[in-house]
Design a protein around this nucleic acid. Structure first.
Length: 292
DNA sequence: AAAATTTGACCGGG
DNA sequence: CCCGGTCAAATTTT
């Protein structure tokens, strides 16, 4: 529950966090540069995904530092209308890169349903600490019809659990390793597997299974959401990277003055790193819209 | 053995 | 009655 700088207060922690993220971006870019000549496809793609995630975090951090949180609700989307569900689109680079889906919190899947016009099923998750801490946060994840690398994630409710605010030491350690893949001090598990909660989730193998976030979905064979509970590879210390923690929610709420009945905010965020490489013009798209 | 996922049944709103 | 969301038992994974 520490406050992130919403509005003003600053964030020193965030500054350093931003620096770290940026440093990561730099090293990733270098590596990408290096790999560019050798094997272009796979490896590079994976890296791009990580890069995208890192940049995403950086942007978030920067925004919260600047006190310009939800400054983007361009087209008039009643951001404060009535719903409080927060949704975002997350794109993964490859099947192995589900970092974007990993919002740093542990979720437990409790259901999956086929949705009317959707091609892929929607997976339902609730906070793992629902019973132990009464955390009522939930989220739904669904692959976009067209692009298997894109996932729509909708969050409901604020997190009341502590994990949301305090990442474990292990998570931090992991994050560090992630940043410096060269020295694997102890185990190295960086990219490959780790599926559940504490690391980068990975996708199922190849066939189609069921649900969401997975691996190389580009072929469209992977499933959208799969077996994995996202975990928190990133230090939440900095702040809620991809998922709205209770604190962030409050922040957003107050800034949006989402009144109404509020309980659900919708923040639709679309990150397309792909374009970053294909169209130098628009690296990312941030959209906030209320919906639900 | 414990914890998480899979799935179909069940529920409530439109 | 259809559809989306949740429950819960069976099953799988750790």
């Amino acid at each position: 529950m520490e406050g992130y700088g919403g509005g003003g207060g600053g964030g020193r922690k965030q500054e350093s966090a931003l620096a770290s993220e940026l440093a990561q971006v730099l090293s990733m870019v270098r590596e990408l540069e290096a790999r560019m000549d050798q094997d272009p496809p796979a490896a590079a793609r994976e890296l791009c995904g990580e890069l995208a995630n890192t940049v995403d975090r950086s942007i978030r951090i920067a925004r919260s530092c600047c006190g310009c949180p939800p400054a983007d609700s361009p087209p008039g989307h009643a951001s404060d209308g009535n719903n409080n569900a927060q949704s975002r689109q997350v794109r993964v680079a490859s099947v192995k890169d589900m970092a974007p889906l990993d919002d740093g919190l542990s979720w437990r899947k409790y259901g999956q349903k086929d949705i009317l016009g959707a091609k892929y099923p929607r997976a339902y998750f609730r906070c793992t600490h629902r019973h132990s801490q009464g955390c009522l946060a939930t989220k739904h994840v669904q692959r976009a019809d067209a692009d298997p690398l894109l996932y729509d994630v909708v969050y409901h409710g604020a997190h009341a659990c502590v994990q949301a605010a305090h990442p474990s030491a292990e998570e931090l350690r992991r994050e560090l390793m992630h940043m410096h893949p060269g020295h694997a001090a102890g185990g190295g598990q960086d990219q490959d597997q780790e599926q559940q909660q504490s690391s980068s989730p990975r996708a199922p193998e190849v066939e189609l299974d069921t649900a969401e976030q997975g691996l190389q979905l580009q072929s469209g064979l992977l499933d959208p959401m799969t077996p994995y509970a996202f975990a928190a590879p990133t230090p939440g210390d900095f702040f809620p990277l991809l998922s709205p923690t209770g604190a962030e929610w409050q922040m957003m709420r107050s800034s949006h003055a989402s009144a109404g009945n509020g309980t659900d905010l919708v923040d639709h965020h679309q990150f397309q790193f792909d374009d970053l490489f294909t169209n130098a013009a628009e690296p990312f798209h941030w959209d906030l819209y209320a919906a639900n």
